[in-house]
Amino acid sequence: MLPCTGRIDESLLLKSFENGADGVMVVGCLEGDCHYVNGNIRARARVQRVYEILGQIAIGPERVRMYNLSAGEGAKFAAFTTEFYQKIKELGPSPITIARQSKPREVPVS
């Protein structure tokens, strides 16, 4: 459980990709409306850094994105989710998923 997007750091986002996510959507409160003052602003910067990291390796930057909305905007949430889902569907499975499907993992277990 994360009480706030401000708790999300870069490693958590990268871990999601390691765990097989094809895309990661970060949904935070509206900017200027954070219960913890600036948690969502920090999250935005971290998402941006992960975006840049993914751009430097074969995963590609578009697989991570941050959205902001309020808790009362259910319809908007659904629309954002659909939009992001469509985007990831277009991109297809992440190179990690593809690599894992094509051959068994080689990493020795320590």
């Binding site: 490693s11 990268l14 871990k15 990291i53 430097q56 990690i96 051959k103 990493v107």
Partner: peptide, 17 residues
Amino acid sequence: QVLSSTLRLAREAAGRP
């Protein structure tokens, strides 16, 4: 953590975990 994840992802995507 970030560097390790990044290296793992890059290497696994390249088929050489």
